[in-house]
Simulated assay, not measured.
Amino acid sequence: MDSFNTSLEGGFILMGFSDWPQLEHIFFIFILIFYFLTIFGNSTIITISRMDRRLQTPMYFFLNNLSFLDLCYTTSTVPQLLVNISGLDKTMSYAGCMTQFFTVLLLGGTECVLLVVMAFDRYAAVCHPLHYTSIMHSLLCQALAISSWVGGLAISLTQTGLIMTIPLCGRHLNHFFCDMLVLLKLACEDTEGIEDNLFVAGVIMLACPVTLILGTYAHIAHAVLKIKSEAGRRKALGTCGSHLMVVCLFYGSAMYTYLQPVHGYSESEGKFVALFYTIVTPMLNPLIYTLRNKDVKGALWKVLGK
């Protein structure tokens, strides 16, 4: 318990990538570039969606929400990582750590629900095209977006509350942000019961949405096969394909990390996987939607004056 009190008073030391000091400068440059591209790409999506009337539809409303989430999600970890790698300050207070943990879970949980909502939007567009505008009216879109945030908040409050009940021994976190599995490894007591609760929460947060999305796309695939026009099939698969790529990137890395026992978690490997879902995936999302979508590309060229 003394160690727990020390953690409360002195906070934590984030080890980051100090295991590879010779690579820290290279990491700093690449992460800074990726962070800039993430901010630029997602801000561009939000801007052109608001400037072009053709993009003021339910699909782009949810895409705006996804871009905003990616901006917030990356910003909740990357600035701290850049400071950590530069060697200026590797410490974080207990309150700061719990705040970051809560924020990351809130944003990650919200994105989990939002990706399900976006799958439902694609289902309505492909399977019920004649009734799409009446189904996905503005009030429903706003309600679904708010529900995503409420779902993320519920997940975050539950898991943060569980983590804060655990007494922690030691101050060194072998990660670049306050991650659940790393915090559990500092526990002073047996956490088997809490690990079981967190695993169930992880299944609800990750496996259940993936199941819903796959079920939705099974119906979409069946509807696409009935479309006689090749151009129509291509258009339907284009918008759905972008969403599926984002789902695979986000859920694949998250499920690999969090749906495993704590004792089997490799901190060194976990840091590199975390780099992927905190930096690479948010950077790729705008590219995926821009490169595969003629409407977005057209709006972008229009804004650039081409």
Rank of each mutant, 00 (worst) to 15 (best):
V247H: 07
A207D: 14
I33H: 10
T158M: 13
M98C: 13
L181R: 14
I288H: 02
C208Y: 15
A236C: 12
I26M: 09
I288R: 02
Y132M: 01
I48M: 01
V262P: 04
I13K: 10
T103S: 09
G298S: 02
L183K: 06
L173D: 04
L184D: 10
F12G: 01
A218T: 15
I213P: 13
C169H: 02
C72R: 08
I155F: 07
G215Q: 05
A154F: 14
F68Y: 08
Q260K: 11
M136F: 07
E267I: 04
D196L: 15
T75A: 11
V303R: 10
H128S: 10
A119G: 09
L183Q: 10
P209R: 08
K302E: 14
F177W: 11
Y123I: 09
D19C: 04
M118N: 06
H175N: 02
H243F: 06
S3D: 08
A236D: 06
E192Q: 15
D70L: 08
T77I: 12
F102I: 07
H219T: 10
H25M: 15
G161Q: 12
I163P: 02
V83W: 04
I279V: 11
T75C: 03
G151V: 00
F101Y: 14
G109R: 04
G270A: 05
L291K: 08
L284G: 06
R234L: 02
F276M: 10
T211W: 13
E195T: 13
P282S: 07
F12D: 02
K294T: 13
G161T: 14
A143H: 12
G232A: 12
H222V: 01
T6N: 08
V224I: 01
I33N: 10
Y132L: 04
S229L: 03
L114T: 13
S253P: 04
T75G: 05
L88I: 05
L304W: 10
M59L: 07
M1Y: 00
H219I: 08
A221C: 09
M98I: 15
A201W: 15
Y265Q: 03
F28H: 12
N285Q: 08
F62C: 06
G152S: 11
L139A: 13
D2V: 06
K306P: 03
T160P: 07
L291W: 11
V182R: 06
